[in-house]
Nucleic acid binder design. Sequence first.
RNA 1: GUGGGUGUAGCUCAGCUGGUAGAGCGCCUGGUUGUGGUCCAUGAGGUCGCGGGUUCGAGCCCCGUCACUCACCCCA
Length: 444
Amino acid sequence: MERPTPLSGFPEWLPQQRIVEQQVIAKLQRTFELHGFASVQTRAVEPMAHLLAKGETSKEVYVLRRLQAEEGDNTDSGLGLHFDLTVPFARYVLENSGKLQFPFRRYQIQPCWRGERPQEGRYREFWQADIDIIDKDTLPGHYEVELPLVIADALRGLPIPAIRMHVNNRKVSQGFFRGLGIADPMEAIRIVDKIDKIGPAGVGKLLAEQLDATDAQVKACLSMAEISSPDESFVDAVRALGVTDELLDEGLAELAAVVSTAAAEAPGLVTADLRIARGLDYYTGTVYETTLDGFERLGSVCSGGRYDTLASDGKNTFPGVGLSIGVSRILGALFGNGLVSATRETPTAVLVALPEEERRRDCDRLARVLRTRDIATEVAPAAQKYGKQIRFAQRRGIPYVLFPEGESGGPEIRDIRSGEQTPVDMDSWTPPVADLRPEIRAGE
RNA sequence: GUGGGUGUAGCUCAGCUGGUAGAGCGCCUGGUUGUGGUCCAUGAGGUCGCGGGUUCGAGCCCCGUCACUCACCCCA
């Protein structure tokens, strides 16, 4: 086999990076459970009809197909890999609605696939950590306030840059455009969302060309898009533009509730940012986008929103609200800039040195004793010179080497960072907690 | 799908107007004969992405192709 080359867009981490990923995921998991979210996993595939029906026509879905199809059979399986975790979850809720208790809070940490051209921060296979709260018939607004706080809690304590959550409400944009007399409010939302990329002039041009917006309308749209505030003051700013609409009022009230509560509970976390739209059009209320300080160019690392009709079978409707952390996007950026790493690249805390091959059984026994106390231990691969064996540990970041027989005649443990070596009682010795498992840290 | 950039040692990269392929780091071995890191000395390792063309001669020029990468689109 030729030497393989990486597949663009399908990242694979090295063991040390994987340790970081595992610990990040473990932290997310712990926090989500602490907030009462139950874990759910869904299959990798969904029926194409389901994937595409949710307004995701633009999504580049990977389609599943059997290689050994019947001759002349060109049809695919009708299955596609999911591109997020919200759509599969909505399907799961409908399918199991009779067995679930509502409101239902679940978290889901799985890979997703999108057949897009990869570039920095965008992969074709990537992990999302998703939380959603879904209810039957109606969903109280307080959940839209709760979710950002859970996310902040989950990311707190990890060695990653601060996050800033930008929040808007679909009703605000939609109501505003409608009250303004814009022909196609949804299209207007999409255009205004590009303001960071193409600037106010570009947005104005598109609004005029594609939606026949008048100069006055364009001006009002741009003014609206520029509104941003860490508190409720955005409400007055919108009112000052003189647009009245029932939906707009509703949205402003909801958004004000989210922002003011967040400001009180987690100062600096949330900003009302009226340009935020989100491409996915199943959102009906609050929408969230999150930037990492210093990595704004990456785009959003945690997005979501409220959806009222995504999970609906015509008879029953299950409105929900959710947020998804882009685990791969965050880690890829941090790894790429050497901002986070693990203290070692293996779980092993102790390497048992091997004096000679004939003593391997004895060394295995020593290792077993430590393992009974949850100390990750391995025996040296070969009875090389001790210098080599110590180096084996050092290269991997293993903090301790255990010598079966030191000068004292009994087992001795060596902290290879300090070089300190002391006789050890095999039945009681345990490393400091910090050395028990690899830990994640800022920097390389 | 469209456009730009880049492919040389395990990694990061030099390689002049076309003339027999280099460095740093890493790795092996030894100095140190069974206790690492520093230092010193050695050594191994390359289909120059792949295919074709021009030329006495191609890593370098031309054509094609593949991969990676950046941007557009869209998004975690």
